[in-house]
Design a protein around this nucleic acid. Structure first.
Lengths: 105, 105
DNA sequence: AGAAAATGCAACCAAATCCTTGCATATCAC
DNA sequence: GTGATATGCAAGGATTTGGTTGCATTTTCT
């Protein structure tokens, strides 16, 4: 996996998060369709797509004159898991501490 | 919840992700202890702490002359859930599509 | 009261981010 | 081959980000 913070940084922009949602909701899409209505130029949106591709969240293939991009769900899931594992552990610790304190009262 | 992208943006910096991990692993900590060994000045690290506080991931309370900061696990979890819900849905969709295609062969 | 400790605040700076516009290139359709 | 379509590439600019230093403020300890 890319360094975890890199994935979160990629998701940490409203436009890119919107792109991820579109790809998740509607499946693989060619550039123009994917980018329509984002409120910025195609070139600007393409840069966001490159950010997502650089961390592996999105993959692109060329089909004729257009480029079709697809969300890599596995990568998204692995980033989630990375944090979820830790959160779960910290949660258990906190519970244990809580029970310990209650036991002492 | 804060806008989801804001939380991911907060997590999208290596220093801040390290801070989150420290707070998770070691519990509430005063500034100097929390910030020690991050490889930057206390003032710089404090700015990172403010970013985390602004999205609600960290809360601080003043105890005498020092400030103690605590990770808000609920906020972290809710950000995870936001994405996990979507990922799970997209996963199911993909599975359904896959089965559909297989059924046609 | 005076010194040490923990923090806050502000000015400043370099680099990264996010967007723009203009133009070049590649593919398809007629 | 010509024109329309989809894309890529590059220069430039405004804003944000991530760091610095210097100094003021608040609390504690003796």
């Amino acid at each position: 996996m890319a360094l975890p913070h890199a994935i979160y940084q990629a998701l940490g922009d409203p436009t890119r998060l919107e792109i991820v949602q579109r790809l998740g909701d509607r499946g693989p899409l060619p550039t123009l369709e994917l980018v329509e209505g984002l409120g910025m130029s195609r070139q600007a949106a393409t840069k966001h797509l490159l950010v997502l591709e650089n961390v592996g969240l999105v993959e692109s293939r060329t089909e004729g004159r257009q480029v079709v991009r697809e969300l890599k769900l596995e990568v998204l899931s692995s980033a989630e898991d990375w944090l979820a594992k830790r959160t779960a552990m910290w949660d258990r610790k906190l519970d244990a501490l809580k029970r310990l304190v209650e036991g002492m009262e």
